[in-house]
Design a protein around this nucleic acid. Structure first.
Lengths: 345, 345
DNA sequence: CTGTTAGCGCATTCAA
DNA sequence: TTGAATGCGCTAACAG
């Protein structure tokens, strides 16, 4: 089937293609009468401007790549939603790219910008190849990550403060022996969360016990493993802070398997507030990251960057929020007594 | 910063732009010596072909739109992964569009194909506006859905057989009073699942009790509501089949709240095998849909369609699989006795 | 095997 | 206010 082009419209309306173009882009630069004739011809032909040609001509793609660590992680879905929503409104498209911790894939997506398949890059990976051929960097915004050696517009949360509030909640409930399952500590984000944990304890006059910290991988199983290892080492604890919800869920499952109840015997706090945090039983107390807002903000910064309102590399903080649900409870007297006995023994 | 074009490469190599183009696209249609000179010039200039120009010239976008009902549903994420993976390998891009049960949004994404922003459409919505201006339809593949009045290449599962296997599992465990929480029955998919449920019962010589069927919305809460309404109506049941996992999780949570244990008092089977099916406690018995495979297959069909190996509108079935985990158990003697007493009373 | 030519569909000068 | 002319960057006839 033949698609109408600007030429066919121009011929039908008896004007030049330039006038058709103008009528559609700047209607008030065209005499009323001409405009009506053109619009009528547009209607008659069913003409729809070929966006590919328009974008080519304007040397823009109106496409942004959202590059994430792992596309299968629902966490990024919410981010994507925020990005897409904002982009949709502004007439942009969003391509989600899966980095998979694979340099080649990352490189591929960065290359897409050079190949004019996208205008910019929202990075949610912890790294980026910085070879010479990657220079200069495309318009880039970073979300929730930090990339060593790069200073770019960033939307972030205060990981340390967020972790601290989670641990403070446990302290407020009377807990003193609080374990931490961290994320991979190579990443600054996870170091920050651990710092927050330590800071909360220290501020409460508790000397952090290194035995209480176990490092995980963010995967559910690593939450299980961490608990198993804590129990194996017979480290007493009445509460546990996990640096993400999946590990928290894994931890709870392992605690149960060992005969401990949550929250009666052990309180658990997660991080992220993923979709299922509210659905597990009991519903998970956790630190909420407003992912859609984070996504939308990143896209907004991206558009600023692309459309010249760039400003300098600033960082915008999105607030987090502790959501108290069913996995945390006041430290029970009995537990407290039992533990003191254990300690004395 | 200036980007090298094919012209600059041609000048540096002392050849025509056509030769540069050829060298890159059909290397062996070029004399060895020339080729080397061109490649050297490419290296020297850091030339990368402008994909936008290439695609424009070839009137293709190498982009496919994956249009889903609700982008926030992690279910589609796995589909997306399958689609993206296959597309990545074939040099295609994938744009995920959010239909949100909104005709206007659907129309928008269908329009994108007409505007040459995408080559084709993978539909995962239950409907599609079929106004005159939407004709003719763009290259379209349907996944896991059926759209009334449209006969298009489709990748599907056998919903009826899958549901039947789930219910058969419950029958095998000795259950006779099996409830079904359906998805929205306007959709063929959900009718089919309900048919499978009925067929399994009938084949086992059980007359289905309409009271045991409750319709849900696929959302977690509707699982809760369905159970609440079953209990309120005092319909006895020892097992429950939910047409998706979220409703199953909601149902379990409500069963627990009412003092019933899963699976000791009530067995539960879900549908989908979403990421969290394995993480809830106890892990959910469910029907697995191989979503990545479904996605990949849909993309494969799309490419066939676009690249002319189209064939006719065929349907490919992807097998499902019952995954037995912890929420189903043999009907307990005690329960059986209690129920008979109830029935007699 | 290579160069010349001719667009793809559109937006944007520049003149009129 | 409008039209003619130009070219974005590239590929694909066609001729040589």
């Amino acid at each position: 089937m033949k698609v109408a082009t600007i030429r066919s419209v121009a011929e039908l309306a008896g004007v030049s293609t330039a006038t058709v173009s103008r009528t559609l882009a700047h209607p008030d630069a065209v005499k009323r009468e001409t405009r009506d004739r053109v619009l009528e011809a547009v209607r008659a032909t069913g003409y729809v401007p070929n966006k590919q040609a328009v974008d080519f001509r304007r040397r823009q793609t109106r496409t942004v790549i959202l590059l994430v660590r792992d596309i299968a992680n629902p966490f990024y879905l919410d981010i994507y939603q925020g990005v897409e929503e904002y982009a949709f409104g502004a007439g942009y498209k969003v391509l989600m790219g899966d980095a998979r911790h694979d340099e080649a894939r990352i490189r591929h997506y960065v290359e897409m910008v050079r190949k004019k398949q996208a205008d910019g890059l929202i990075l949610m990976t912890g790294s980026m190849p910085q070879t010479a051929e990657m220079q200069p960097l495309p318009p880039t915004v970073i979300a929730l990550e930090t990339i060593a050696g790069l200073s770019l517009p960033t939307v972030a949360i205060d990981n340390s403060a967020a972790a601290r509030s989670a641990v403070q909640h446990l302290l407020d409930l009377g807990h003193r022996q609080i374990a931490h399952i961290t994320g991979p500590l190579i990443e600054l984000m996870n170091q920050k969360r651990h710092e927050g944990y330590l800071a909360a304890l220290t501020a409460a006059g508790i000397a952090p016990d290194p035995q209480l910290t176990r490092s995980g991988t963010f995967r559910l199983d690593s939450g299980r493993h961490a608990v198993r290892s804590l129990l194996h080492d017979q480290v007493p604890f009445t509460a546990l802070f996990a640096s993400n919800d999946e590990m928290a869920v894994g931890a709870i499952s392992e605690l149960r398997a060992s005969g401990r109840r949550v929250p009666e015997d052990v309180s658990v706090v997660g991080f992220d507030d993923i979709v299922f945090a509210d659905a597990v039983d009991p519903p998970l107390t956790t630190v909420r990251q407003q992912r859609r807002i984070i996504g939308a903000k990143a896209m907004a910064m991206m558009i600023d960057l692309l459309e010249g309102r760039g400003g300098t590399a600033r960082t915008e903080l999105v607030p987090t929020e502790l959501v108290v649900r069913g996995t945390t409870a006041r430290l029970a007297q009995s537990t407290r007594r039992k533990l003191s006995l254990t300690e004395r023994a």
